[in-house]
Design a binder for these strands. Structure first.
Lengths: 223, 223
DNA sequence: AAAAGAAAAACGAACGTTCGTGTTTTTCAG
DNA sequence: CTGAAAAACACGAACGTTCGTTTTTCTTTT
């Protein structure tokens, strides 16, 4: 038999990893057996070892590939944000985070597996330097906000945006993985708008607007 | 042999559970063996089965006891809060949440174990009805804030406080369990004051104060 | 025939649990 | 007061599986 083409190898690996991922997520890493993986992947036990040397190597490969998927997804979400602290942006941002969490909820379970069984070895960099990355990503926008005086003097917009990000992210994670079952007592959409409102008022300078009872005119601030 | 006194039984169970807890946390539930637990508890394999019928029963008992510990801890934290949305209260609140997360970081790992290996069977109620509970706990304070007009009309103080709680909680959890390593780019103390500032401005009505450059006088609001 | 992927068999170790057997203390008949 | 039966905890060997991995044996294509 000749050597399989790289694409064929990838296809086989793909089937094995898909099976392994589902099982890891359903029952954890240690509770999943190689026989289990092989069976679900429609191949034999021995053959799995033609593609991976150990079980952990399978996990590593899954996480590695998934990591780049998530990175891309996040980048896409950030890329469509023009003005990071504008209410409309944050609402849309919240909706996107919700979708991301729900679409890839396996990934976050893998993260927990990693925390528990490997002391977060594979995911260390996920939250390291979060603010730093966001600050760099939106450097021009944040600087513009600062110089325009749109944000409070004692507020770092990068920190504020990070807080929003983490709040959204965590909210939907709890909803999805912990059975939060609307733990804010509102619909997801309401949570997004409520949080957005809170953050915007908390972060942005509101020049003489929004007294009690006064209807907001949204675009009082011009520059 | 006569029946052991209830206190003696509790003592023995305590040693077994202490050992099991450490091992579960270090390596997960399925990766921990009964022999492992027995060895660390200084007893024999068979004897463990005199106290528990299965391995899962040990986990259940650990979680149950820990749950009441955490509940008490949280109640104590809430009990010393007089005015839930006052900046000083929130700063102190943040510090307490930090301590709670750090003191019981095993507990949160157990929570992840539960999410992963038991579909969150034992922890379901942890986040269910969170807002509802907080709203009841601080009913008088929240109503007073509302009637005094201290909060924005479109803000539910219970939701706001829940948001603060979750944000603090999640921040320190990420720091502790995910190796966040100051993922907000600030010291913990700075994070607490920054977040507090954001939330207060976002939640509380600021009557004509805090224009750019104007030093805040904190207690401009009277009636 | 040669090469390599796939399958199956085999291996030793470890698993959760059961079971039989100590070991120790109480009970109570004598 | 004695000592045998009873009761219950402690123990570890043993059971039947299952584990991750290795080795061997097909099977298929060059």
């Amino acid at each position: 038999m000749p050597k399989l083409s790289p694409s064929a190898i990838e296809k086989n690996k793909g089937r094995i990893e898909e099976a392994a991922k589902k099982l890891f997520i359903k029952q954890g890493f240690h509770a999943t057996s190689m026989r289990n993986i092989a069976g679900r992947a429609g191949t034999s036990l021995g053959n799995v070892y033609n593609y991976y040397r150990t079980k952990e190597e399978i996990l590593g490969s899954i996480i590695g590939k998934y990591q780049t998927t998530i990175d891309g997804r996040l980048r896409a979400i950030f890329d469509e944000i023009d003005e990071p602290l504008k209410p409309e942006s944050l609402v849309r941002f919240g909706q996107q985070i919700k979708k991301m969490v729900n679409d890839h909820h396996d990934f976050w379970l893998l993260m927990y597996i990693d925390v528990l069984e490997f002391e977060n070895r594979h995911f260390r960099k996920m939250f390291e330097g979060l603010v730093h990355n966001l600050r760099r990503r939106f450097a021009t926008q944040f600087e513009e906000l600062k110089s325009r005086g749109a944000v409070h003097d004692d507020v770092d917009p990068a920190v504020g945006f990070t807080a929003v990000y983490m709040q959204f992210f965590n909210y939907f994670l709890v909803e999805k993985l912990f059975g939060g079952n609307h733990h804010f007592g509102l619909t997801d959409e309401q949570v997004i708008t409520q949080l957005t409102g809170m953050y915007c008022r908390g972060l942005l300078q509101n020049r003489g607007a929004s007294r009690k009872g006064a209807k907001r005119k949204t675009k009082t601030q011009s520059g």
